[in-house]
Every structure is written in structure tokens, then in C-alpha cells.
Amino acid sequence: MNIPENFTEFLYWIKKRTEDLWSNEDDCLKGFYGAKWQPLTEEQINSIELKYSIKFIPEHREFLKVLHAIDKKEIIEYEDEGEIITEEYTFFYNWLENEEEILQVMKEPYEWMLDDIETVNKVWLKSWGLKPKSIEKRKEIFDEWFSRVPILLPLKGTRFIVSDENLKWKPIISIRGSDIVIMGWDFRTYLLNEMRNHLDIHIQVFDEEDQMFYPELLPEIQEIFDENFKYDKTKDVPYLKEMMLYWSSGWRGFGMSYHPENAKVHPIVKTFIAEEEI
């Protein structure tokens, strides 16, 4: 498998590979049969930036020009008390059609993190200093901190691109409350990660112990992931990194380890959980 390194060529590779797979009803996931990507023009992208008062970084613009969104809904089925429930979900957000959903999702990182400070998890970062007893004061500290967080633009579900053109790495993150993980340190790796079930990039490997076949990523794909997620001291997400390392799920995205076996692996510095209140 020859995966293009040039980003634009890679996007067209994604387009062809997914649409080819979606053209076969037996091979594609439920809801994707016949799906097509709906790219945007430069004029449409410029208009969206004005409408939402945002700025897409170059990689995001290129993604929107080649892929953007599809013309189908993802179908999820699950069982609830013996009944099969079927629900439809937006795949990648359509900036021309999903205005209400996008506006709501853009507010959610702030709302989710603030809720995690005041409810179940009682999150409090070391950089915030001693934890005030006053709810109003806690919110004031959080608001000032969040105002410095890079702009987060929604892509799909709870996935956001850190939209700061000045950062060396352009990560895509998944946010659930204060639990934030890296999905890819660049758009190319993120799409391989997010679209892995739509790209036919697995091989079946037989497990002798279980006597079953299990899917494993092709070596070329695994090598891309390993390279993208290895430790690099330049990897940072301003202000959000501390929140990411608050939970054990965040350190993997930075190539860190709790118990490094050699000096090449950078150990995680466990974040502070404040008990003090003032």
C-alpha cells in the first residue's frame, strides 16, 4: 500500500478509497452505501469564515476543499432492555447544513470542562493555584484560563482541531468533559485513525491462544501511528496540555510513560489535584 505523503494527494487517496468501499453494500458500514464526499469551494470556505467569525488553518482548508462532509448519516444500532435502537448521526460536520449543531458543539468544550470542575470530578489544575471555596471565584479563574486556550473547531462528534497556525504540530483532539486525548498530531494521521474502518487498512492475524482471527493495522499504517505519537519535546497544546495530563488517558498522545524502561521514553509528571481551598 502506497500512502501519499503529500497532504493534498493523501486527501484524494482517502476520497477514492472510501468512496470505492462505500460503493459496495456488502463491504461498507451501515448507512454508508453510496456515500459521496461534498467538498467546498474557496468562496464557500471564505463565506463560512465570515459567518462564524473563525479562521481555518491551511490544513483544515485543504481538507474542506477535498473532503469536508458526506451526503449520508452514520447509523448506530445498539440494544436497550432487549430492544434494538437505531439512531442516525452526522459523520463529519457539514458547514453549509449543520449550523445549529456546529454552533452548539463549538460551545461544548467550555461547558464540559466547567461542569467537570463543579460536579463529579472536581477537576482543579496546579496552574490555577489554591482552590477557592467560592463557586464564583472558581469560575472566574477557569474563565480566564479558558480564554487563553487555542481556538477549537469541530470536525466530527467530539473531535476538534486545535486551530492555531503558529503551533508546530496541528493536533486533532477528542474532548469528553475534562478528559482530552490526542487523535493525531496532524490531519493525515488523524484521518487514518478516524477512518480506519472505512479504508480497508487491516489484516487478519490468527491468535493461537484464542484460536481466532483478529484485525491488525497494516504495518505501514502502524508505523505512521508509532512515528506520530512518539515522544517529542516540541509537542504541546497551550494550556490544554495540563488538562490532558490530568487524566491517565492523556499521556499516551505525548509519547509519555508512567514507568519508562529506558531514558528515551519521557516519564509523565503526574498533575496536581488540589485539596486546599481558600
Rank of each mutant, 00 (worst) to 15 (best):
K241A: 03
P215R: 11
D200G: 06
C28W: 14
K16I: 03
D236Q: 12
K51V: 03
E194I: 08
K230Q: 15
S178W: 02
N262I: 02
D200T: 12
F254M: 01
T158K: 14
S248A: 09
P154H: 12
I203Q: 15
P260W: 09
K36F: 13
R176G: 06
M243H: 03
F146R: 11
T119C: 01
K156L: 08
A274W: 05
E165D: 11
L153D: 00
E42G: 03
G184Q: 05
S174G: 10
M1G: 14
R138Q: 08
I48C: 11
D143L: 03
L67F: 07
W13K: 13
Q204L: 10
Q204S: 14
F32H: 02
W95I: 00
Y12M: 10
L167N: 10
V162F: 04
N121I: 01
I268P: 01
I117S: 01
K235F: 06
S248N: 09
E165C: 01
K235Y: 04
W37D: 00
S53D: 15
D143F: 10
W95K: 10
D164N: 15
I14A: 06
I203D: 13
D210S: 13
F63Y: 08
I75A: 03
P39M: 07
P4A: 04
W112S: 13
F146L: 04
R17G: 04
E227N: 13
I76P: 00
Y33H: 15
M244L: 09
I45W: 13
L155D: 05
E81D: 14
K156P: 01
M183W: 14
Y190M: 04
E136G: 08
R188Y: 04
L40E: 03
T158W: 09
E194C: 11
P150T: 02
D164E: 08
R196G: 01
K270P: 05
N24K: 05
F7Q: 09
V66T: 09
E77W: 09
N98H: 15
L11F: 07
E118H: 14
E227C: 03
D232I: 00
I180M: 04
E194A: 15
R176D: 12
D115A: 12
D164Q: 08
L40D: 00
L245Y: 14
M212I: 13
S178H: 13
F32M: 05
F206G: 02
E261C: 02
D200C: 07
K264G: 12
D186E: 14
F146A: 01
T90R: 10
D207E: 09
T119V: 06
E49H: 12
